[in-house]
Design a protein around this nucleic acid. Structure first.
Lengths: 222, 222
DNA sequence: ACCTGAACACCGTTCAAGT
DNA sequence: ACCTGAACACCGTTCAAGT
């Protein structure tokens, strides 16, 4: 899809702005001010042009966001050295994707795309699928296993990001405290029991623990 | 938060519309036409009033959406009979939440709220946490385990829903086929190997398999 | 207390025309 | 081929006034 408009024999007006400039400026707005502030109009004025000029370089806003995701992935997903041990390799590859996404809060709105977030991520997908196969899973089960890992990873990112946004917006924290304060220990004993520790426990980053558990479970012959 | 405006001594003008009517009409629009079509203006004309009248019954659109989620959860989350066996109980409770959410595609935009999607879901959370504790986890690890399950579940819903939306919008399928057709078997052998089976494999519903694997992994002492 | 009208400050996108 | 101006069909929300 990131198909750089092939410069034919240039039988027309020379371009004043390029697709790269559009994406680059969009990236700046998005990293500096958040994805909400990225509008076609804003982008156009920032670039010194008109909204409609943009539509000559991207099909619409949706495509612009996907291009932005590809752009980020290509830059952020540097391939790490992977352990030889397949189970560890799976964990490290998934954690690398997770880390890149977690470092980039604006990505959430676009992220939730599909099983493959970007062609740049394919190498990581390969590592995970290969690790699962090496551990004895059939190719089919390995693909399903990869998807389970992706659900878990994307879910962690999305839930965490929107929770953070809500927290910034208004006092939802107060709401939660209220709910957990009013718990009936007769009906919901476990929750009542750990009600006062819920917030700090929830704040802890346990992505890796859950990932390891999931991978363990996927590899356990059942 | 769903605090029905307590009717005091009614020392003013009698209300023409109620919060219930606002939520009910919003629910109808959202289930019939999708969440995108729910606008404050649309809702107002549907209800035979003006946009600003709504702001007397809900703080803003964000709150309206949260109320809508609560409303749906209260209605859709009927408590099932749970197995006595704790591990099975965890799976059934999580699957019940998942089923309710999956049946309701509009929920995705709101869903990604926090660890507790709604007070109506607390009973299910209790069942999951309790099951994990009964299986030998400490309360702290049980909370973390519940969160891992929630990440996985929310991720499955979000990824699947947006994938479906994209598919409806345009021919992203074509894009994926193109990517998987161009794979270099030297660099990405596993993916090349199952490239032609990727689409059907991805279409299969393996939520329960992944859930069981995750729960197994969480329960395995490590 | 509850509702209305008019306005503010925006959106994404299309269409027809210009160079 | 690339860009512009003007317009279409909308948004959420605030403010001041009415009953």
């Amino acid at each position: 899809m990131p198909q750089p408009s092939a410069p034919r024999k240039s039988p027309g007006r020379p371009p004043r702005i390029s697709r790269e400039e559009v994406i680059g400026t969009a990236r700046r707005i998005v990293t500096e001010e958040g994805v909400d502030r990225l509008t076609m109009r804003r982008l156009a004025t920032e670039i010194g042009s008109t909204p409609m000029a943009l539509y000559h370089h991207v099909r619409n806003k949706e495509e612009l966001l996907v291009l932005l995701l590809d752009d980020y992935a290509a830059q952020a997903l540097r391939r790490p050295e992977l352990p030889a041990h397949p189970r560890r390799r799976i964990v490290v590859a998934a954690a690398a994707i997770h880390e890149a996404l977690a470092a980039c809060p604006w990505i959430v709105e676009v992220l939730t795309a599909d099983d493959l977030m970007s062609t740049s991520a394919l190498w990581f997908v390969e590592q995970i699928v290969d690790g699962l196969v090496e551990c004895g899973l059939s190719p089919e089960r390995a693909v399903h296993g990869y998807r389970a890992i992706w659900y878990y990873t994307a879910g962690e990112i999305v839930v965490r990001a929107t929770a953070a946004r809500r927290r910034a917006d208004d006092d939802r924290g107060t709401y939660r405290e209220q709910v957990f304060g009013d718990l009936d220990p007769g009906e919901l004993p476990r929750l009542a029991q750990i009600a006062d520790r819920w917030a700090p426990l929830t704040g802890e980053d346990t992505y890796l623990d859950g990932l390891r558990a999931l991978v363990d479970g996927l590899l356990a012959a059942r």
